[in-house]
Design a protein around this nucleic acid. Sequence first.
DNA 1: AATCTATCCAACCGCTTTTAA
DNA 2: GTTAAAAGCGGTTGGATAGAT
Length: 319
Amino acid sequence: MAKQSCCHKKKLRRGLWSPEEDEKLMNHIAKYGHGCWSSVPKLAGLERCGKSCRLRWINYLRPDLKRGTFSQEEEDLIIHLHSLLGNKWSQIAAQLPGRTDNEVKNFWNSYIKKRLRERGIDPATHQPLAEPGGATATAAGACRAVFGDVDLIPTTTPLQAPFADPMPLDGVKLPLEWPVAGTAAPSSSLSRSSCYLQGGCFDMDALHQHCAGAVPAPVVPSASSSSTLTSMAEAEHCNTNVASAGLPWLELGPNAVADAGHVDSYAGALDELRWSEYFDGAFQAAVSQQGALQAGPCVYSGKDDVAVHFDVHGLSNWC
DNA sequence: AATCTATCCAACCGCTTTTAA
DNA sequence: GTTAAAAGCGGTTGGATAGAT
């Protein structure tokens, strides 16, 4: 027997949110925080289930959402993280300040997947698609993802965290003109606000201290916002001057040993490889050039036996 | 102008994990 | 240790809209 959702059980309202509902929810959270989500609809005067309220807040009403089109950097980062993490949308979104897992997932499914296929890359495996009559690249787990053996190496310019100034909950005034269904939030009201309701955001103060050369402060990872990786990138930005021949904030490097000099030591052409090149076909050339280096079928793998254990939170150990 | 098709994305569903009693 | 509730997550659906015919 199919289980009915909580909304069905209680005959609650479903579907798109009206501006009035949005306003009720925003007003409630601005005043009291969300607390226990299951009690929010009742307290806010909404005929919705708590789950629906939570989703609406996380995916649309949260003041720290960026919205709008994804930048090239964001796109590249999503692809890279997907190659490492798979469909862990929440973890991927956590590295993209102001983006939600739902947004990233939709972007992936509607745009990136298609684009990768156009470039002859299997979005599921990040390997070249099988050529008709040619060798398949996905031979039964013979290889990890295309970027399976590389690490994210934060370099000179991290993705910009959109909120420089933490906004404490006390006294928070959410602009009521934003966002209503179908309208984009005015950037002025969103870009510098960071909602710390329920302690759900990363600690920019700690980050700034970190950047200023203070004792590295633990940056609290959070599912609702950017966490360690971005923080790491920013820290790197502040403390070191890592030459970046590729993306300004990201380089490819070997996975196994994340030592300071590993970029230089990474074999041949890979250390100059950029995502744009990857998409523009140079990727294919790099594959052929690297052919002699690679014993296995992995396109980017120079160390076939080194398993990848990518732990986003573990990246804090890099500091 | 009308209809069809493709695309995008907000929201839902159901499962898993975490937390509290 | 057990159980129930809450929260989190990823997959999927369906409505709105843009573009093509």
